[in-house]
Simulated scan of single mutants.
Amino acid sequence: MRKLVYYIGVTLDGRIAGPDGQADFFPVGDEAQAASYADGVNALYPETVPAGLRTAAGLDGVPRRRFDTVLMGGATYRLAADAGLTSPYPHLRQYVVSATLAGGGAADPAVTVVPGDPVGLVRRLKREGADGALDLWLCGGGRLAGALLPEIDELVVKSYPVIAGAGLPVVDGAFDPTAFEAAERTAFPNGVTLTRLLRR
């Protein structure tokens, strides 16, 4: 069965963005460090690079390695849409879980808006793939991650060496201690640590 993988960048205090969704404060280092970091994570997860950056990253035509489907909350989708990316991941099947967007739909026919029941959606998507099928990527946000915590099989956490002080939490839900175990960890020259964790 396919896995649901929450692949996300976080600050040292567990924020995935600032209070208004900003992410421009995440440090990436100097030009050489930033390039080394981008090359490293893009080689591992090329599907996670959005449409507007794929050509510059040399990822046009690169086959999918890990994911064929992306799920995101309404706020995460709106950030992309406001930047002109109404279909931010056209190389993947795209689902937006949002009651507020459900009435008018998404601005792009390649994006499927689901008004509720994210757990039911994920369970259906997990079952439709045969053994060896690519996994599902949860790219944000924190409220959707909180709702889907029972279904998250794996975390891939990019930990940035910065404290936000306030902002959107990596998981925003009820108190539900859930154990994960580190499977591998990679440190990059810019101070970012990429950790893959499996649900216990």
Results as ranks from 00 to 15, higher is better:
residue 56 A to R: 14
residue 107 A to W: 02
residue 131 D to F: 14
residue 85 L to F: 05
residue 139 C to G: 15
residue 132 G to Q: 14
residue 54 R to W: 06
residue 104 G to Q: 00
residue 65 R to I: 04
residue 99 A to Q: 11
residue 110 A to K: 04
residue 134 L to Q: 15
residue 64 R to P: 08
residue 50 P to Q: 09
residue 126 K to T: 11
residue 111 V to Y: 01
residue 102 A to R: 02
residue 81 A to V: 02
residue 103 G to C: 01
residue 119 V to E: 15
residue 95 Y to A: 04
residue 139 C to S: 14
residue 79 L to S: 12
residue 118 P to D: 08
residue 103 G to Y: 02
residue 106 A to N: 07
residue 95 Y to D: 06
residue 92 L to D: 03
residue 121 L to I: 06
residue 73 G to Y: 05
residue 69 T to W: 09
residue 82 D to P: 01
residue 65 R to Q: 12
residue 96 V to Q: 03
residue 83 A to L: 14
residue 80 A to Y: 15
residue 131 D to V: 15
residue 101 L to Y: 00
residue 46 P to F: 05
residue 131 D to C: 11
residue 129 G to F: 11
residue 87 S to Y: 02
residue 62 V to P: 07
residue 86 T to M: 02
residue 139 C to D: 14
residue 134 L to C: 12
residue 137 W to D: 00
residue 107 A to P: 00
residue 48 T to S: 15
residue 105 G to Y: 05
residue 49 V to A: 11
residue 63 P to M: 07
residue 113 V to Q: 09
residue 71 L to I: 10
residue 134 L to E: 07
residue 81 A to H: 02
residue 119 V to H: 01
residue 123 R to F: 11
residue 113 V to W: 11
residue 110 A to F: 04
residue 121 L to W: 13
residue 127 R to F: 03
residue 72 M to E: 00
residue 121 L to T: 09
residue 72 M to D: 00
residue 59 L to Y: 12
residue 135 D to V: 12
residue 62 V to K: 10
residue 55 T to W: 05
residue 126 K to H: 10
residue 76 T to S: 06
residue 115 P to M: 00
residue 129 G to H: 12
residue 123 R to A: 15
residue 73 G to S: 12
residue 118 P to F: 08
residue 137 W to Q: 07
residue 93 R to I: 06
residue 114 V to R: 08
residue 93 R to L: 08
residue 119 V to P: 10
residue 85 L to R: 07
residue 122 V to K: 11
residue 138 L to K: 06
residue 51 A to C: 08
residue 121 L to K: 08
residue 83 A to H: 10
residue 136 L to M: 09
residue 123 R to N: 14
residue 127 R to M: 12
residue 67 F to G: 03
residue 139 C to N: 11
residue 89 Y to V: 06
residue 68 D to V: 09
residue 83 A to M: 09
residue 140 G to E: 04
residue 111 V to G: 00
residue 93 R to D: 13
residue 89 Y to M: 09
residue 124 R to I: 11
residue 88 P to G: 00
residue 58 G to S: 09
residue 128 E to G: 12
residue 72 M to G: 01
residue 126 K to I: 12
residue 82 D to T: 00
residue 93 R to H: 07
residue 107 A to H: 05
residue 124 R to T: 15
residue 127 R to P: 00
residue 72 M to C: 01
residue 78 R to Y: 06
residue 136 L to K: 08
residue 119 V to K: 11
residue 117 D to M: 15
residue 84 G to P: 03
residue 67 F to E: 07
residue 58 G to T: 08
residue 106 A to I: 03
residue 87 S to P: 01
residue 53 L to T: 04
residue 46 P to L: 06
residue 81 A to Q: 02
residue 90 P to K: 06
residue 93 R to M: 02
residue 131 D to W: 15
residue 57 A to E: 07
residue 92 L to F: 09
residue 113 V to S: 05
residue 94 Q to T: 05
residue 110 A to M: 04
residue 73 G to K: 10
residue 82 D to I: 00
residue 89 Y to W: 13
residue 98 S to N: 10
residue 63 P to D: 05
residue 135 D to L: 10
residue 91 H to P: 01
residue 77 Y to Q: 08
residue 52 G to T: 00
residue 120 G to C: 13
residue 112 T to M: 03
residue 127 R to C: 13
residue 87 S to N: 14
residue 98 S to V: 13
residue 64 R to F: 05
residue 53 L to Y: 14
residue 77 Y to V: 01
residue 62 V to A: 13
residue 49 V to K: 00
residue 97 V to I: 12
residue 127 R to D: 15
residue 99 A to K: 13
residue 58 G to V: 10
